[in-house]
Write a protein that binds this DNA or RNA. Structure first.
Length: 400
DNA sequence: TTGATTTGACCAAA
DNA sequence: TTTGGTCAAATCAA
């Protein structure tokens, strides 16, 4: 307990010191010759420092309240985690109830901001990843949403999902671009639960950051990510996405981290809604690198050759207006935007019939190393189509 | 075996 | 009473 509090205090002091240093830098940049961009950047950094500090203090205040309730010196984190308390079952239950109430109240005061991400835009699914380790703790159908969640026949089926069978049929994992493309081409299907995530380090470090991911009512291809609370935890490697390796301590973490500045921008929008409709076609090339599925077959190699078969080109399947398809020479991640599937024409998608968990399955398969709610890794988002068992995929030439 | 996800149930706020 | 948010047992997966 003592150690944890000290650790938190050290972090708080560090944040405040950093804020002081940044303020000094800002002072130097008040010179008219300094660029406004640098001033803006410093201001953002300073604000972030103080916001993180406040967030830490919020947690500290919660800790204090828990101590009042409990009257022990037990580590609040472990108490919240539900173990380590020497109390009796009855008092333990009371304590947990109190904790629940306190946490609930405290979280309501946490900063909150929303980001919208278009899945069919060039940002790819990586745009939904913020580089933190998240753990899904719940999912809820939201009343009034355009896309209520469909109940599966049973739990087993819901977990397994038809895409598991599809994948078996294919003998490989299906490309995510199919999904992105289908989103653009088909009307929304009734399916869009809200998924709840909390920081993986909540118990260990008391990080109260949470986020919700929900499909937008206005545009089925847009996902609204609502963040609540700032991360007070230490993520082991906050590095540039394009350079970041897969984090060993976070096995399902995306292999990249967000650009620090980018993250600061997102997190500085407290108590307000940030509408970030991600870029459309023209920015595909620029943004796709953020979309990565660090699966074994994709990490190790750089795909330098055009993996599109001529047959697809000839059939004009690689429509220029489809963000899912970009020139393979653009970047490594373009590999993921390729569609390793032969099909006669675009009507393929019209024939697709599937259930709600298809996307989740395929996505989770593709994002097996990602712990962030990249659309479907965790959400049973709908596509509005099912797979026609009659169509055939020929992926051998791509995944030989 | 361990960690993550799913999902029914519970709680608090509206 | 309804609804959103969270918990936790059951289950899955590596």
């Amino acid at each position: 307990m003592e150690k944890l509090m000290t650790w938190e205090q050290e972090r708080l002091i560090n944040e405040l010191n950093q804020g002081r240093e940044l303020t000094k830098q800002l002072k130097n940049h008040l010179d008219p010759s300094a660029s406004p961009e640098s001033r803006e950047f410093l201001i953002q950094k300073i604000l972030s420092c103080y916001e993180r500090s406040i967030s830490m203090l919020n947690w500290g205040a919660l800790v204090g309240e828990l101590h009042k309730v409990d009257g022990t010196s037990e580590t609040p984190q472990s108490q919240l985690a539900g173990h380590g308390s020497p109390m009796t079952d009855a008092s333990d239950k009371d304590f947990k109830d109190q904790c629940h109430r306190d946490v609930y109240k405290k979280r309501k005061t946490l900063p909150r901001w929303t980001q919208q991400v278009s899945v069919c835009s060039g940002t790819g699914l990586g745009a939904l990843d913020d580089g933190y380790c998240w753990r899904k703790y719940g999912q809820k159908d939201i009343l009034g949403a355009n896309f209520p969640r469909q109940k599966s026949e049973n739990k087993k089926d819901a977990k397994k999902g038809p895409f598991s069978d599809v994948e078996k049929m294919l003998g490989t994992r299906i490309h995510l671009s199919i999904i992105a493309l289908a989103y653009r081409q088909l009307p929304p299907c009734p399916l869009a639960p809200r998924a709840y995530y909390r920081c993986t380090h909540r118990n260990a470090q008391g990080c109260l950051a949470t986020k919700q991911v929900q499909r937008s009512d206005e545009d089925s291809s847009i996902f609204e990510i609502t963040y609540r609370g700032r991360h007070t935890c230490i993520q082991t490697s906050q590095v540039t996405p394009s350079l970041a390796p897969i984090r060993k301590d976070c096995p399902k973490q995306n292999k990249y981290q967000p650009q620090p500045h980018q993250e600061e921008e997102n997190q500085s929008c407290e108590f307000e809604t940030e509408k970030v409709k991600t870029a459309e076609l023209g920015i595909v090339k620029e943004n796709f690198p953020s979309f990565s599925f660090p699966s074994a077959e994709t990490e190790s190699e750089n795909v330098e050759t055009n993996i599109f078969p001529d047959s697809l080109k000839e059939k004009n399947f690689l429509a220029s207006d489809s963000p899912a398809f970009v020139s393979p020479e653009t970047s490594e991640s373009d590999y993921f935007s390729m569609l390793p599937i032969q099909m006669e024409n675009f009507e393929f998608f019209q024939n697709l019939r599937h259930s709600e968990s298809d996307l989740a399955e395929i996505m989770s398969a593709r994002t097996s190393v990602s712990n962030s709610p990249t659309i479907a890794a965790d959400l049973d988002f709908p596509l509005g189509f099912d797979f026609d068992p009659n169509f055939t995929f020929d992926t051998s030439e791509f995944f030989a």
